[in-house]
């Protein structure tokens, strides 16, 4: 039989255990390692006012991104593995989605605006689906957008010349109001990724 006293004790014990677990996670830095920037929460508004430029030299602001769900990936053209692979994956998902893909906006935002000029982005993105819009801008503008999207990136100097960029590799999914609606992680299975994009496209459909 569970007496009220016992129930109270169980609740108290559970609360203490949870607190100890949380303290351990914080102390071990597990959370920091998992999410170098605070993890976004569902429904959080990610799209804040911004002004960037696309690969054709056109100005792009938050108003262009809002109005239909968006698929946003941060990377850089000097990136040898994750970025070309992800852009090739996005291109194949767009092919799989067919006309439904037009209900989504696809964006590749550089974390390396110093090297990724609109011209560089234009050349690079010519190898992928033309619906992927490449965005670049000043270092300050890129930084503000990355922060708003909860994207971690850091320039790392390489001995012997040059540098590389550490960066969050997940693809962010946003609804038509610019709110966080999920992620697609690097190398996620194609059917799972396409299902997520289909769901996102449906969410963004105008009410019947």
């Amino acid at each position: 039989m569970t007496t009220p006293m016992r129930t109270v004790r169980i609740i108290a014990l559970t609360a203490v255990s949870v607190l100890i677990a949380l303290a351990l996670v914080a102390r071990l830095g597990v959370w920091d390692a998992m999410f170098p920037s605070p993890p976004p929460s569902y429904g959080a508004v990610m799209v804040k006012p911004f002004t960037l430029v696309d690969q054709r030299g056109q100005k792009v602001t938050e108003h262009d991104m809002l109005g239909r769900p968006a698929v946003v990936f941060f990377g850089f053209t000097y990136c040898p593995e994750v970025c070309p692979t992800t852009l090739a994956d996005i291109t194949s998902w767009i092919g799989e989605l067919g006309p439904e893909a037009n209900r989504l906006g696809f964006y590749f935002v550089t974390v390396d605006p110093g090297r990724d000029t609109p011209e560089e982005l234009n050349k690079y993105l010519s190898s992928f689906d033309p619906r992927i819009r490449g965005l670049t801008g000043t270092a300050a503008d890129i930084d503000a957008v990355a922060k708003a999207f909860g994207i971690y990136y850091k320039r790392i100097e390489i001995e012997g010349g040059g540098y590389t960029m550490d960066h969050t590799s997940s693809i962010l999914l946003l609804d038509a109001s610019g709110r966080f609606a999920g992620t697609i992680t690097y190398q996620e299975a194609k059917d799972v990724a396409v299902a997520k994009l289909k769901r996102l496209a449906e969410q963004g459909a105008p009410a019947a």
């Binding site: 170098p36 040898p80 994750v82 390489i158 001995e159 012997g160 550490d166 960066h167 969050t168 997940s170």
Partner: peptide, 10 residues
């Protein structure tokens, strides 16, 4: 790849 962040080092 830790916590979704890609890092490369020589």
């Amino acid at each position: 790849m830790e916590g979704g962040v890609m890092r490369m080092r020589p």
